[in-house]
């Protein structure tokens, strides 16, 4: 029982101290989980983080489940995953309660008009950053990025459909490129 409580508390801290998720969790994992508790080593953390990105859902939660499972099996994984999500749940609920109650106040409305302008810039910056890591060649731009962008911006196409189609397209493009390469070598 003590082990589970320790696991729970350690991942509450991970959830509460990580700003923005993803990469931001790594320094906290390294300090608390690797150095203080010694539950996993640096290399395992990076492996789990890489694998967590390949699965659907929230990268931070997935990574926490991997480490919790490594430490205490399935139950440990569930405890760590839920603990990492709990701080968000509490903090955001309190803020949402507060903001819902005061949404009609002019000062809140003016503040959010300014904030929205800022959020627009943050989204654009995020897209630019993602663009650099996602667009590995012209095929990924022409075959995937442009059609998905156009369909999403100008039609009612469901994002789920677009994501599934893109994954299939990725596999088809890779397999075709591989067989083309092999065909070229044979000839």
């Amino acid at each position: 029982m003590k082990d589970y409580l320790q696991l729970f508390w350690a991942f509450i801290k991970v959830g509460a101290l990580t700003f923005g998720g993803g990469y931001a969790m790594l320094p906290i994992l390294q300090r608390d989980i690797v150095e203080k508790h010694g539950w996993v080593n640096d290399e395992e953390v990076m492996d789990y983080y890489a694998m967590a990105q390949c699965l659907p859902g929230i990268i931070m939660v997935n990574t926490s489940v991997f480490i919790g499972r490594h430490r205490k099996g399935t139950a440990g994984g569930i405890v760590a995953g839920l603990a990492s999500a709990l701080p968000s749940l509490v903090i955001i609920t309190v803020i949402a309660m507060f903001l819902t109650a005061f949404a009609e106040y002019p000062i809140v409305q003016n503040a959010f008009a300014g904030i929205r302008a800022c959020v627009v810039v943050l989204i654009v910056n995020a897209v630019v950053k993602l663009w650099k890591s996602a667009m590995v060649d012209w095929k990924s731009i022409v075959i995937i990025f442009l059609p998905v962008f156009a369909l999403s911006a100008f039609t009612e196409a469901s994002p789920i459909l677009l994501v599934v189609a893109a994954a299939i397209a990725g596999i088809v493009i890779t397999v075709l490129a591989d067989s083309h390469k092999k065909g070229g070598e044979a000839a």
């Binding site: 995020a126 897209v127 996602a134 590995v136 990025f145 994954a167 299939i168 990725g170």
Partner: peptide
């Protein structure tokens, strides 16, 4: 290979 397609798609969805 799936992620080769997923990453640009995800970027496109966010851009839209």
């Amino acid at each position: 290979a799936a992620f080769y397609g997923l990453r640009p798609a995800s970027t496109a969805l966010i851009a839209a």
